[in-house]
Each structure stands twice: as C-alpha cells, then as structure tokens.
C-alpha cells in the first residue's frame, strides 16, 4: 500500500468524521440546509419568487458551506509537523495536497449534492432546475474544494488565518458562483461549460499554489 494512499485514507477519515477540535462533514451540510431553510422565512412563502431566486440561494449556501472547514484543512497538520515529516520522506506537497482536495471534495461536495434535493424542496425548485443545480454542483464543487485547500495552505500558521481565509476565498470563488447560478437562468446552459472551465483552472493551479505556500511558510 503506497504512502499516498495511506495519507489519503487519513485525510478522508478526518474530514468526513472529524475529530475533537476539527468537526466532520456534518457541519457544512447542516449549515447549507439551514441557509436553504432560512431563506423562505426571510423573503416570505411566495412560490414564484422562491422558484426564481432559490437556485441562486443554493449556490450562495454552497459557497459559504465550502468556507466553513477552511481552518482545519491544512493548519492542524502543519502545526503538528505532518507536512515536515512527509517532506522528509520525499513525498511532494503537491501530491499530498491534490489528495487533500479530493478528500475535501468528497467530504463537502458530495454531501451537498445529496442534500440539494432537500434544499430544492424547501426553495420550491422544479425537477428541471434541480437537475441543473445538481449538474452545476458536480462541476463547481471541485473548483470550490481546490480554492479552499489553496487558501487554507496560504493562511495556515497566520494569526486570524481562519477569518482571513474566508475573506480571501470569496473573491476567488465568485466566477464559480456567477457561472453556477447563471446556468439556471433561461438560456443559461452555456454557464455550465464556463463553470466546468473555471473549476478545471482552479484544480490545475491549486496543488502547485498550495504546495508553494507550504514551502514558503517554512522559511
């Protein structure tokens, strides 16, 4: 069994089930559903308004849910010396972080996709809209995971890194939000292609940016 596979299993277990001081996948999921539930309370039960704006709310909720676990993606392992020990064994930061992006996506992107039908019910979305939302989440959440891990690596070890991380991640995630929510407008199917493109660009850059951030942090 290779070292990277062992590290990936540890990442996934930690991100899915959490540990004392680092909550698992449940928290972002409940947060996502809470936003979807609060929105109708705030704007009233007008079914047409909800159906028109609900998909956008799902995207905002997904973005915020992706930011929640930022402070435990990289910081605790950096603090405990895991990254130094991996580097010493010749395991590249880029490899570790690519797998961490995958583990992060599995622990927040996939649960959000599973919860989306419930959110769609709360927001009065019809079947076609739900289908587009699911497709959009499938294409967009890997990009959100990539941005999340990059920002987590950049802000690890800084004072107030968690709050700063949230602030830094939001502007980077704006293209994903625009294309994701835009794909739900009438005639907005092209948004899905742009969403996939932004997601791929984020995924391609993230391991190198995050790896560079961790190496720079050692100086």
């Amino acid at each position: 069994m290779s070292a990277l596979w062992t590290i990936f299993r540890r990442d996934l277990t930690l991100l899915l089930f959490g540990a004392p001081g680092r909550g698992g996948a449940l928290l972002p999921l409940l947060f996502f559903l809470a936003v979807a539930m609060l929105y109708p309370f705030a704007v009233g039960p007008d079914a047409k308004l909800l159906a028109r704006t609900g998909a956008g709310v799902i995207w905002v909720a997904a973005l915020l849910a992706a930011i929640l676990p930022l402070d435990r993606l990289v910081e605790p392992d950096l603090e405990a010396g895991f990254f130094d020990q991996w580097a010493l064994r010749g395991i590249a930061e880029e490899g570790v972080l690519s797998l961490r992006i995958l583990a992060h996506w599995l622990s927040f992107g996939v649960p959000l996709m599973l919860a989306a039908p419930l959110a769609a019910g709360l927001l009065n979305l019809d079947g076609a809209q739900l289908w587009t939302v699911e497709l959009g989440l499938l294409l967009g959440t890997p990009g959100l995971a990539a941005i999340g891990v990059t920002i987590a690596a950049l802000t690890a070890g800084l004072r107030a890194g968690a709050a700063l991380g949230g602030l830094l991640a939001i502007p980077l995630a704006v293209p994903l939000l625009i294309f994701g929510a835009g794909s739900l407008q009438p005639g907005g199917e092209g948004g899905l292609l742009l969403l996939a493109a932004s997601s791929l660009a984020a995924l391609a850059i993230a391991p190198f940016a995050a790896g560079g951030a961790i190496r720079a942090g050692r100086e």
Partner: peptide
C-alpha cells in the same frame, strides 16, 4: 534516508 524528531511529534492527538 533521513528521519527527524523535533518538538512536534506529528501524531494524531485524537
């Protein structure tokens, strides 16, 4: 191969 032991044990505390 090198092995390092410093003040951070790199063990999962939980």
């Amino acid at each position: 191969a090198l092995a390092l032991s410093d003040e951070r044990p790199a063990l999962d505390t939980h």
